[in-house]
Each structure stands twice: as C-alpha cells, then as structure tokens.
Amino acid sequence: MLEIKDLHASVQGTEILKGLNLTVKPGEVHAIMGPNGSGKSTLSYVLAGREGYEVTGGRIIYCGEDLTDLEPEERAAKGVFLAFQYPVEIPGVPNSTFLNEAVNSVRRYRGEEELDKIQFVKMLRAKTKELGMSDEMLKRAVNVGFSGGEKKRNEVLQMAVLEPKLAILDETDSGLDIDALKIVADGVNAMRSPERSALVITHYQRLLDYIVPDKVHVLAQGRIQKTGGKELALELEKSGYADFKGEAA
C-alpha cells in the first residue's frame, strides 16, 4: 500500500525528515508516536503533497506509484486522506456543499459518474447517522465555530464520506471526550478492510485500545527509531521518549 524509502524532506530550508523508512501493507493499521516537533505532522503533509514541504531525497511509493510529483488533489482522488491536526475553517461554505464538491471532484477524477443531489444527501445522511452526528452540523459553514471535538468529528465524517484507501489521522483523538473518542475509533474500525490501510498519529495509548494497531512506530529526530507491536505504546506510556531524544542521526 505504502512504501516510504529513505525519505528526506525540508520545510523552508530546514531538514525535518531525515531518512525515514516505513512500509504499510494493505489492510494494516500503523500507529505513529513521538515527541512534539519530531516531524509527525510534517510526514503527513509530505504524504498529502502540501506545498512548501519539499522532498529532497528518497521515495514515496503508494499503490505501486511514486507520489512525489502529484498534486494534492490527485493524491486525494487516488485515495489518500489526511485528517488534519488543526482542521481549517471555510466561512460561508456549508459543510454539505463542501462534501458534495469533494465527493464529486474525486468521482470526476476517477471517471465515475457524479452523484446527484438526492443520491448524495442520502449517502451523507447515512454516514452522519453512523457517526452519531447531527444534521445541523452539515448546514453550518465548514468548521466555523465548531468546538475542538466537533472539528475532529467532522474530519472523521469527511473520511467516512470519501472512503479513502490510505487514511492518515493526525492526532484526531486529541481533545476528544470519551464518547467522541469511541465514535472516532468506530469510524476508523468501520473502514478497516483488506484493501484499506491507516496511519494513526497519536500521543495517547488510550486510542489504541479502541483502534488496535498492527504496528507501532516511534518517530523522533526525523526518523522511525523503533517499531513494535501494540505493547510498544504501553511501554512508551511508562518510559516516555527519553531514550530517543539524544540519538540524532
């Protein structure tokens, strides 16, 4: 699904990712943990193709194809989804209008027929219900005036609607109450299938009780420093990242 080889990436001339290697097979869920500022969000932006995040070395192979030269919208259409650590507000654009535009843009790109209003609304209602969200949130402008938790839930709704092949969740659990956390986890689990994979960036072992990962990685100093199973998250909970901080490459 995803194969990252010796990835180097810079932001405004500063190298943040320094030879990162990561392989995610179809159907797998990987958790990425690591200290603040270690490059987790940077990795997610690089994967999504954000401008200003320059790949200076290495390769990102997604479904057999090098992503490096693709525009963000092309990657999205090919099934890469990023749930943002800080979701962005779009004043005046109703959430449902935005989702409709997104779904049909992706369908157009894939050469599929666009959903008409009725089909779309039906699909959207179903997803909203599954996630225990209110229809009222669909009418409001994208993320405007949403609470922190509502924004995160809105990210999960977008993911559910777009049904990505590779979902990257950047601290989607931060700021969620227990009930919301379960909803988010259910949302991710509902999408688990042999064809879909997920990268879950988190600071809290707690989330991984609900979304059980196949692998846990520690990202520090711009590299994957350690990889283990679910139990690694529990270890980190106790010992912190002290072991990884001095080991700059």
Binding site: A76, I90, F98
Partner: peptide
C-alpha cells in the same frame, strides 16, 4: 494557503 490545501486534500482542484 491553509484553506486551499485543506480543500485540495479533499480532492477539489485548485480553481474550484
């Protein structure tokens, strides 16, 4: 930039 990237990440072209 944040708004444009957010929308493009959802598959919407830059112009749209």
């Amino acid at each position: 930039e944040d708004q444009l990237f957010y929308l493009r990440q959802r598959g919407i072209s830059q112009e749209n």
